[in-house]
Each structure stands twice: as structure tokens, then as C-alpha cells.
Design a protein around this nucleic acid. Structure first.
Lengths: 348, 348
DNA sequence: CTGTTAGCGCCTTCAT
DNA sequence: ATGAAGGCGCTAACAG
């Protein structure tokens, strides 16, 4: 049989209540008593029953982290940072709190399913990372879920996505629009005029904001954009490869490609190389996010650096109530243009 | 107040037990009754109380995944694959089961702490990924913990680490020794004789096995290895950069560098380039794992491909009892040498 | 197929 | 500072 609190109590010759108090450390207990209890715990190799505690106390030490795909470093970095900040009351790392990572794959239903599952677990907090899906019905459904979670005492923080109307979830947004603008301005300044854009999936805030930034820069420079120069795909290398090949077909005179993110940019580079084009001599390429591998790519990627780990760490602290929520409950996290070898003057 | 099972029962005019049965779907219930219950659930926006269920049923739908660092794609890929296979009884993806990702940072105490926390949660299964720490006391402690978990009904699967003596945890091991041997043989066949080795942290099975494979190849070729040609560090780019610079100092005539993994290899490449050496004309470099970014590196990395996602998916299925454990409870996952642009003949 | 009856193991007032 | 008692919300026999 599994050993329970009362077993420990019996062995330590105290009441179960006392053992509970020692274990939770949130109530005065005589030092000598504590010793005895701790010894009994040790002797019996006792481990608290989480579900029972959670049921009785009506709270759990689970923290949900929603990501599109944890295999993508963009999300891995954020998940890691959140995790490092959700240490328990003791303060020791690897502490009491457990991170529940949920791969939504960017699918609306799974996002909702996981939110429900987290609610079911009575999660202490939930951090939603990455861009949101921009579908009216879905946004409303998410808002409703977040409201329920909040009512149940779960703190909700968004990291990398815009605030959800109708909720008071804290939002740390990324400067997607500004970053994209800077990247395109960089290309324009170099003299590029025929610029292709490999966008992410439609109906995503990240996709839209980055594309808007790009268009703002073009408009400001008085450069018209033919729609033929934008191709949508998913946020991965394969998609970048395919979309770029397609773009090249439609517009062989392209001198630059703006990619939705770094992975897409690498796919774009591969496609360009296969078409016999050199980077950046023939075509310049820019990414977005500045993931660790960007600096080691061939050539190193010009991109927009997002402080993912810092932002997610902050999200984690806010989720834990260890840091006050920002004024107005929303903050934009700034990034920074990083110029490397993948961009240069256009060929003549 | 939060709505409970009995509220639903009352509204549907059935007993709580019946509601439980339709919600768990593991017991015959009349279609009409089910309808009524489901409607009540919907009307009331009812969400099951996970801790309460777990307590009553003595099992939870939490699955632990231990990783060194989820920000590292090596672990991210495995965590993602495990996650995709732990769908609940319903079979629908994004199902009932939740993955608890635990970043141990490769620290022994945190590994034990998380194992205890998972035991506390009455996790349905635990998957331990990546190499293990080779410290006698720690191995014994882990073995004891795994035994307790198993006793409590938690299925334990190791993915990428050797079996733990004294437990009957299923182990999917990686062919680290064979892979390293093949990589070094590849270099030897090209004519290299002065080969540096940038190893991972000491006291890790992965580090030791890879180093052993390397030495086997050298020995088989009758090439002596001076200890000055091995440098230890952690499994990341920075460490690879530093260790390579150091190696270069000790042995400027190096014609090849074997790195502990792909990230380390990229760091090595950076260090070599900064020393004015071309890859592979002056120095060849090989990595290990074949992470996605390896193909886009400059130059593309020659490495040893490990089917991480497949292996972890299998680990996930075994952990869920959806796939039978292999004979003898241990299987070696094979990899494959991938020759790319980072290796060539040594300079003359 | 459905209702009744006991707990699951712990936390938490309320006393002492 | 400690003990006693009730209940958190659900599941799992057991009847019927």
C-alpha cells in the first residue's frame, strides 16, 4: 500500500494536521515537532499526493504553456524561459511548480481543448505564446475560456500575441510590425525595389503584422507592391523553400526576399541557391526572430532580433505574481535589426 | 460557485455516477441519457475537476518528460514527438493527456526533484530523454526513484539513455558509440591524422560513448591519440567555440575537428573561421545528431543522423502502452552517417 | 442500464 | 502550537 499522511502522522506521533502544516510550511510548528515529522517522512519515503492536495486546497502547482510546436526553437526558447521562472514558493530552482507544455500545432480546436484541459487541472497559471489565430469565432471562444480561467483563479499571460478583448489577461506583444518595417527599410536603403515577401499562414496576427510593416515601408518609400510578390505558407523551412521557388517563377527579377521568420529564410536561401543565385550578390534575404542558428547560416542571416527568452521570463514572473503586471496590462517588447551577410546591394 | 458533477446530474435528472460514466465513456449508458447529460454539461459549461478525478481514480492524465533544456532542438524535437503520441483513450490528437516538461539542466538534484514531483502528481508515465549522468550515487538514487514510480503504476521509458540497472524501465538507446566511430572513420578515410575532439561534459553517458567510438576508430586505424587533442565542454555552441580555440592553440596542425554534437560543431566552425581557417579546405568539421539547422550551416555539416522524432514517438507509445515494449526491454536506435560539405581531404 | 454508498488523501476551520 | 472533524469533487464497487 501507498503510504499516506496519517502513516507519517502515526509514526511521528502527531496528528495529520500537523504533518500537513510542516509539509506546507505555511503555519507555525514547533521546531522539535517539525524534526520528528520530517524524519518520519524520510523513514517512510513519503511523497505527498498532489491530486489530493489540489482537491482539498482548490489549487494546483501546474502552469500551462501553450505553444505551436515545442520542436521549433522559437517556442522552445520561450517555454524554457517560462519554466525557469515558475519556481515554487521556496524559491529554489526546479522547485515545486510543473510546466505543462501544450503543442497546439496552431490549430484553433486544439488551443481550446488544451485551455479546457488546463482549466480541468485547475492550473495555477497559463502562458499563451506566439501569434494568435484571427478568426472571429475562435477569438471569441478563446476570450470566453480565458475569462473562465481567470474566474477560477488562473493567471493568464500572453507572450508574443496581442491582448484578447474582453479579458484582462496581461499581454507582452512583439514588435512585429516595426521589425518588418525596419527590415524592408534596410533593403530599400540598399537600393532594392523588386522585393518578394514569403509570408506565414493567413489569419495569424504575427503574419498580418509583419506583412503590414513590410507594406508600410514600401508605401513610405513610394515603391508599389504587386501582389504577385507575396506568397503565403507555414512558418517552416520547407514552406520557405517552396514559396520562394514559386515567387522566383512569377518574378525572376527579384533582388530581395523578406521571409516571415528565420526558418523560412533558410528555406528561401536554399531555393535561391538551387536556382543558381548567389546570396547576397544576386538576391538578398532577410529573416525574423534571430534564432540561434541564424548566425551560423550560409550566409549569416540579416534578421530582426526578438528577446524571446527575456520576454518569456517576464511572462513567467508575471504569471506567478512575482512581478507586477505592467500598466494597462499590455507592453510591447522591442526588438532590434541585426545586419549580417545575407543582405547587400542589388545586382545591376 | 464552481459547478460540480452533481449540479450536472441534477439538471440532467440522473445520478452523479451516470454523469461520471458518460464523461469517462468507459461504461455503457443509454444514448438518450447521454444526450441529456451532455446537454446539461454544455448548458452549465461544466469542466471536470482533474485533481478530484485523479484522487478518486488513483491515476492522472499527466505524462512527465524530462529534458536537459527544452530550448535545445535536440530535446524539443523529442518532447514534441512524445507529446504527439500521448493522446488519450479517445484517440483524438490534442487529447486528454498533458505533457509535463521538466528542464533538468543536466543537474542531478533537479532530475531527482522532478521525478519526485512527478510521483507526487501520480503521473501516468514518465519519459526520460537524453544522456544520463554517470555518478554512482546519483544513478542509484534515480534507480530507486524509478522503482517507486513503477510500483505506483507509472510507466517509465528512457529515450536516448542506457537502461538503469535494478529497474525494468524500457530503454531506447542511441547508437552514440557507433555513430562516433563512423564519423571518425570517415575522417580517417579522407586521410586525416591530426584530429581534435571537442567532447561534451564529463560524467555523461552520451559524452563517454561518443568519445569511446572516436577512440575505437583511431585505434583500429592505428592512429595514436594524444590527450592534448580532447577538450571537454558543454553541449552548446559557445562551448564548442571556446574549446576549439583552445585545441587550436595546443595543436595548430589540426586538420579535423570532431564535435560532440551539431551545436558544438557550429561553434567550432566559428572559431576556425576566426582563426583564418577555411572549412573544409584547411580543417574538416563533423557534428552529431543532424539537427535541422545542420543542413543550412556554412558549410552544411557532415554529421550523424539520429531519428530523434521517430525514437521519441515510439517512447511515447510505449509509455502509453499503445505499443508493446521491445524484447529484453532495450533497443538500440540506429543512426546514419550524413556526409555534407564540412569535410574534405586534409590540406597538404 | 442506472442509482446508492463509500471512500480516495489531504487541507482547514474550529476548538483546545 | 496542536488535535478533531468535515468536506473538497469524483469514481468504483455493489446492488438492483
Amino acid at each position: 500500500m501507498t503510504v499516506t499522511l496519517s502513516d507519517v502522522a502515526a509514526r511521528a506521533q502527531v496528528s495529520p494536521a500537523t504533518v500537513s502544516r510542516v509539509l506546507n510550511g505555511n503555519y507555525p510548528v514547533a521546531a522539535s515537532t517539525r524534526e520528528r515529522v520530517l524524519k518520519a517522512v524520510d523513514d517512510l519515503d513519503y511523497v505527498l499526493n498532489g491530486p489530493a492536495s489540489a482537491l482539498a486546497a482548490a489549487t494546483s502547482d501546474l502552469v500551462g504553456v501553450l505553444v505551436n510546436d515545442i520542436a521549433d526553437p522559437f517556442f522552445g526558447i520561450m517555454a524554457s524561459a517560462v519554466q525557469s521562472e515558475i519556481v515554487g514558493p521556496g524559491g529554489r530552482a526546479g522547485g515545486e511548480r510543473l510546466a505543462v507544455v501544450c503543442n497546439t500545432g496552431g490549430e484553433p480546436e486544439r488551443e481550446l481543448t488544451y485551455l479546457t484541459l488546463l482549466q480541468r487541472q485547475r492550473a495555477a497559471a497559463v502562458v499563451l505564446t506566439g501569434g494568435a489565430i484571427e478568426n472571429e469565432a475562435h477569438v471569441a471562444a478563446v476570450a470566453a475560456k480565458l475569462r473562465r480561467l481567470a474566474e477560477a483563479g488562473t493567471r493568464v499571460v500572453l507572450c508574443g500575441r496581442p491582448p484578447v478583448p474582453g479579458t484582462d489577461a496581461v499581454a507582452l506583444t512583439f514588435d512585429n510590425r516595426g521589425g518588418a518595417r525596419e527590415l524592408t527599410e534596410h533593403l530599400l536603403a540598399l537600393g532594392h525595389r523588386r522585393i518578394g515577401y514569403v509570408a506565414g499562414p493567413e489569419e495569424r496576427t504575427t503574419t498580418r503584422h509583419r506583412l503590414e510593416g513590410h507594406r508600410e515601408a514600401l508605401a513610405a518609400a513610394g515603391v508599389g507592391e504587386s501582389d504577385g510578390l507575396v506568397a503565403h505558407g507555414s512558418y517552416d523551412r520547407t514552406s520557405g523553400y517552396g514559396a520562394t521557388a514559386e515567387l522566383l517563377c512569377r518574378e525572376p527579377d527579384l533582388t530581395a526576399v523578406v521571409a516571415a521568420n528565420d526558418s523560412v529564410a533558410l528555406g528561401a536561401c536554399a531555393a535561391l541557391r538551387e536556382a543558381g543565385l548567389r546570396i547576397p550578390e544576386d538576391v538578398s534575404v532577410v529573416g525574423f526572430d534571430d534564432l540561434p542558428f541564424s548566425i551560423d547560416a550560409a550566409p549569416p542571416l540579416t534578421t530582426f532580433h526578438l528577446p524571446l527568452a527575456e520576454a518569456a521570463a517576464r511572462a513567467g514572473r508575471i504569471a506567478m505574481g512575482r512581478e507586477a503586471a505592467p500598466k494597462g496590462r499590455i507592453v510591447e517588447v522591442r526588438g532590434e535589426l541585426v545586419v549580417r551577410g545575407s543582405t547587400g546591394k542589388p545586382r545591376v
